[in-house]
Design a protein around this nucleic acid. Structure first.
Lengths: 161, 161
DNA sequence: TATTGTTATACTCTATAACTATA
DNA sequence: TATAGTTATAGAGTATAACAATA
C-alpha cells in the first residue's frame, strides 16, 4: 500500500481562457490533503535555510528525546521500514547531526545520539518550527486550535478504531 | 511534558522490549498528516475492488463534470504538470474509462470525455466513496463535520492568504 | 511566439527480499 | 531461529527540459 502521493487536490479555481473547472466534492480526504499540502509547503519555506523536512525534523526530535534508541526503534516509531531508516541516518550522520554508536550490550544495534552540533541544530530549527506553527494557526483562536486537534483525532479514532 | 495526554500526538505506540519512544510535539502538520494518511488508507481499502486511487477518482470526477476539457486544463485544475497527465490519461484510456478526441476547433487539444463504461464506473465508485466518507466521519456529528471543514479552510487561508 | 501533447529523464519516498553479523 | 543493519532493487508520483504540431 503506497501511492500516498500528492495528487489529491481540490481544483484551485483554475481560470484558463476564462474557464473554471470547478471543484471536487466536499470530501474530507480532499480537504485534509489540501491543508496538509499547504502546511507542508509553509514548513519548507520557513525552514528553507536549514535544509530539513518535516520527516527529518521528527527524526531528530525523537532521537533527542530517546537518546540511544536503535534504528529499528526509530523505524517502528515512525511507521517506516527499517531499511528506509538507513539512508535517513546516513544523511544525518554525514551532516554531523547524529552519531551511530555500537551498543555494547547488543552489538547488532546502533545506538543513536545527537551530536552537539545536532543539538544546536535542533534548537535553531525548533525556533523556526515554532514560528511556522504560529504562522499557520494565526487565523485560529486557542479554542479553534483545540477544536481542530480534537476533531482530527476523532477522525483517526473513527477510521482506525 | 507529555504522558498520554489527549492533546499530544502519539507515535504508533511502539512497544519493543517494553520501550515506548514517546511522541512528537503537538504540531498541526503532524496531526494533519496522520489523519490524512489514515483516511487515505481507508479510501484504498474501501474501493479496493475497483483499482482506483483518490487522485484517479478526482480526475474522473473532473472529466465527468467538464466534458471536453483538455489535458492541460486538467493538469492546471489538479496543480500538476501537463506532462504528468499523459500517463494518467493513458491509463484511464487503456482501461476504457476515458476517451481522447481530437478537438476540431484547436487541433493541438485532446478533448477528454468519459466513455459509457467510464460513467458507470464512476457511478459505482462514487457509491463506495460515499460509503467511505460516511465511515471516516462516523464519530463526527453534523456540527463537528461543518466545524472541521471550516477549520481546515481557515488554516489554508492562514497559510496562503 | 506561445501552447498542447509528448517523450526522456530524474528525483523523492517508500517497500520487499535477501545478505551479514549478531543474539 | 529471530533480530539489527544493510544493500539492491523496484514502484508510485512527480517534475524539468526539449521537441513536433498547431495556434
Amino acid at each position: 500500500m503506497k501511492a500516498d502521493s500528492d495528487e489529491m487536490q481540490r481544483i484551485p479555481a483554475v481560470e484558463k481562457g476564462g474557464t473554471d473547472f470547478g471543484e471536487l466534492p466536499d470530501l474530507l480526504g480532499y480537504e485534509l490533503r489540501r491543508a496538509q499540502l499547504a502546511v507542508f509547503k509553509h514548513f519548507m519555506a520557513t525552514v528553507a535555510q536549514e535544509d530539513i523536512t518535516p520527516g527529518l525534523y521528527g527524526t531528530i526530535v525523537l532521537i533527542d528525546r530517546n537518546s540511544g534508541m536503535s534504528q529499528s526503534d526509530l523505524a517502528r516509531a515512525l511507521t517506516l521500514d527499517r531499511s528506509t531508516m538507513v539512508a535517513v541516518i546516513d544523511q544525518l550522520e554525514r551532516r554531523g547531526l547524529v552519531q551511530r554508536r555500537k551498543d555494547a550490550a547488543d552489538r547488532r544495534r546502533h545506538a543513536l545520539h545527537l551530536t552537539d552540533r545536532g543539538r544546536s541544530f535542533l534548537d535553531r530549527v525548533r525556533r523556526r518550527v515554532d514560528e511556522h506553527e504560529g504562522a499557520i494557526t494565526r487565523e485560529l483562536s486557542d479554542e479553534d486550535k483545540a477544536q481542530l486537534f480534537a476533531l482530527l483525532r476523532k477522525v483517526q479514532r473513527g477510521v482506525n478504531g
